[in-house]
């Protein structure tokens, strides 16, 4: 009976781990999708659409959330599946995490620094540079 319970526990934990990892990919994608949706609006504003501080703050919140959660969302067994993440991520974990830390820092600075259209135009491009940096090294679009 004891053995049965133990086996059951192992199974549940194992299954949980598997679910969590395919879950990691899903969560990663959801965070990136949210960032993209926010960025669409931000880029429009950089191009001359009317400045909207609320939308900027929402975008920064989205980036900040991604930067905080992402380092934990690349467990070793989430390398394959429905993901554009390159294996280089797992070879360079320290660099990847440092990049997320820098994003978090830039977001924090911009959150207090951006108060009007002028400070937005001055500071936002620097925050957005973080996106391309990782996509260049660590992502390969399959389609």
């Amino acid at each position: 009976m004891k053995r049965l319970v133990l086996t059951g526990l192992v199974l549940v934990v194992g299954l949980g781990a598997v679910l969590a990892d395919s879950d990691a990919i899903v969560q990663r994608r959801a965070l990136m999708k949210a960032n993209g949706d926010a960025t669409k609006i931000v880029v429009g504003m950089l191009k001359g659409a009317p400045f909207d501080l609320g939308a900027v703050q929402a975008a920064l919140k989205s980036y900040g959330e991604a930067a905080a959660k992402a380092p934990a969302l690349f467990p070793d067994d989430s390398q394959t599946g429905d993901t554009n993440a390159l294996p280089e991520i797992w070879d360079n974990k320290a660099d990847v995490n440092a990049r997320f830390a820098k994003l978090a820092q830039d977001v924090a600075a911009a959150s207090t620094g951006i108060v009007d259209s002028a400070s937005f135009q001055a500071q936002m491009p620097g925050v957005l540079k973080n996106c391309g940096g990782c996509h260049e090294k660590y992502r390969a679009k399959k389609t």
């Binding site: 669409k40 491009p125 992502r139």
Partner: peptide
């Protein structure tokens, strides 16, 4: 034009891989 200037696509994604250097 925007993607070639800033690297951002109409979905708010930023171009990556070798296209980042191209941009």
């Amino acid at each position: 034009v925007e993607a070639l200037a800033s690297g951002f696509t109409p979905t708010g994604d930023s171009l990556g891989g070798p296209m980042a250097a191209t941009v």
